[in-house]
Amino acid sequence: MITRRTLIAASGGLLVAGCDKLDSSPAFRRTLRLGEKLSFRAQRLISDRAALAPEFRPEQRSPIFRANGTRLPAGEAYAAHAANGFADWRLVIDGLVARPLSMSMAAIRSMPHRSQITRHDCVEGWSAIGKWTGVPLKLLLDHAGVRPAARYAVFLCADGFGATPYYESIDLIDALHPQTILAWALNDALLPIPNGAPLRLRVERMLGYKHAKYLERIELVDRLDGLAGGRGGYWEDKSDYEWYAGI
């Protein structure tokens, strides 16, 4: 017998089944992704390029700062660097730059630095507040001399999920933002391994998965479709997350 209850349950089920079916169509996913483009344009339209993410007072920090994603990169190479206090770690900046760089951690830590107490927002919904210290990415990019053709900075990392090393990318508006730093300290201590030692990106107007950890190389490029799956980042390629992670 068809009761009202089964009818409601059935229509609910149909709605879910319908959405699941739509979701499996690449054309429909592309259409839905218009929302991402709209959010990207709208947020860029209403915010100043240099609009700062809120900064907090020291006592507003999370008692324990949650680490997420890779907590310890696999492999002997990283273990050797960690045992050695990252004394031999190098950061390479290349691609569309006038003067490719390869810098030691000592050289990076001796550069002018910025400290900021900011909130880290995970795409999952949790947030944690911590104090980050590091060199503004703009200083390094100015040293390297970004060529006019460059539009994106690609971050290549030492941590991998299986065989694929982590990678992410941001455009130059975010790369040159005053709060975009390569952090080497968290809460006044050298960056712990679970949080990305020895060097990680902070790009404060973006969700957590953009903040690449265990940085080895930054490559300046003019387009992203040549990078791995073509969508500009590890989670973007693997699980269809949005490249624009401002919301």
Binding site: C19, L32, G35
Partner: peptide, 24 residues
């Protein structure tokens, strides 16, 4: 549970795509 969510199987990225598009 799956009968209450879009999509019915766990996918944060898909749910965000639905949510942030229909939010407009």
């Amino acid at each position: 549970p799956g009968w209450a969510t879009i999509p019915s199987g766990y996918s944060l990225s898909s749910a965000r795509r639905w949510h942030l598009s229909f939010a407009w």
